[in-house]
Amino acid sequence: MIQPYQFNLIEEQIFQLVRTYQSVNDPQTIQTIEGMTKDVVVRQFNPQDDQALLIINEMFQRGLSIKKAEAHLSDLKTYVEPFPAPTIKQTEKLFRKVKKLKVPDFDDFDLQETTYLAWDDIGSQSKYLIATENEGYTAVHGHLSTEVKKGICPICQHESNVSMFLSLTKSSGDGTYTKRGNYICRDSQRCNQQLTDQAHLAEFLKLVKMKEN
């Protein structure tokens, strides 16, 4: 099984390969790019995932088109492990300092495309994020600006419509609080679909996560 962000990376690599097949004529160049792409893709899987590797091999054909690639990727998506959505009680515990927390129905999310759960509370202009960490969860919430602009999201590393997310972070020792944040994707679903490296998400959460007593 693979994680949603790994599937996104595979999808990105395969579509780049299709563009190579369509635009490059030099056999040596194609062979080099094929080798590099296959190395990245195969490394996402356990060597024991024989059926998944068979699907991958089908994609490395010189006549591969976008339509064929999408069909193979659809088959490969069955190997994606869905995000383990928390229960309502777990969610309330993660945000225990939030009064009148509005928990969405996580069944409405495509959990096979979810590396982190996120939703907005328009009434309070707040955004909530939940990610997995050490077989449990880590979570953060903060204010989301109504201003939207073009920028690079630090979570998915893609240019998107972004808004400023700010959370209160407790300064160590002196009991004071500071606001920390960055411009992130306004559309968290799209951000999840573009995320190919979980490390960027971890770095962002480390920056903005509230330090508890």
Rank of each mutant, 00 (worst) to 15 (best):
M1H: 14
I2P: 02
Q3E: 15
Q3F: 11
Y5N: 04
L9F: 11
L9Q: 06
I10G: 01
E11N: 13
E11Q: 14
E12L: 07
F15L: 12
L17R: 00
R19N: 15
Q22T: 10
Q22C: 03
S23K: 11
S23D: 08
V24D: 00
V24Y: 02
N25R: 15
D26A: 02
P27D: 00
Q28E: 12
T32Y: 09
T32R: 13
G35A: 11
T37E: 01
V42M: 06
R43S: 15
Q44R: 14
Q44H: 10
F45D: 03
N46E: 08
N46D: 15
N46W: 04
Q51Y: 11
A52K: 00
L53V: 12
L53C: 09
I56S: 08
E58Y: 08
M59Y: 00
F60R: 02
F60T: 07
R62W: 03
L64A: 03
I66S: 07
E70M: 08
E70R: 14
H72R: 10
S74M: 10
K77W: 06
Y79E: 01
V80G: 01
P82C: 10
A85K: 11
A85G: 07
T87E: 02
I88Y: 08
Q90L: 05
Q90R: 08
T91Y: 03
L94F: 08
F95S: 07
F95Q: 04
R96G: 07
K97C: 05
K97A: 12
V98M: 02
K100I: 01
L101G: 06
L101T: 06
K102D: 05
V103W: 05
V103A: 04
D107C: 07
D107K: 13
D108I: 14
F109H: 01
L111H: 01
L111Q: 05
Q112Y: 03
D120I: 13
G123H: 07
G123M: 07
K127S: 03
Y128E: 02
Y128M: 06
I130V: 13
I130S: 00
E133S: 11
N134D: 13
G136R: 11
H141A: 05
G142V: 02
H143M: 08
L144F: 10
T146K: 14
K149H: 10
K150Q: 11
G151F: 04
C153F: 10
P154E: 01
P154A: 03
C156F: 08
Q157N: 15
H158I: 09
H158S: 14
H158V: 13
N161Y: 08
F165M: 04
F165Y: 11
F165P: 00
L166S: 12
L166T: 15
L166K: 12
S167P: 00
S167A: 15
T169A: 05
S172H: 04
G173E: 04
G175T: 04
Y177H: 12
K179I: 07
R180V: 15
G181Q: 00
N182H: 14
R186V: 13
D187I: 02
Q189I: 13
R190S: 11
C191F: 09
N192L: 08
Q193I: 05
Q194T: 11
Q194H: 14
T196N: 02
T196W: 01
A199I: 14
L201M: 06
A202H: 08
A202N: 12
F204C: 02
F204Y: 07
N213C: 06
N213T: 14
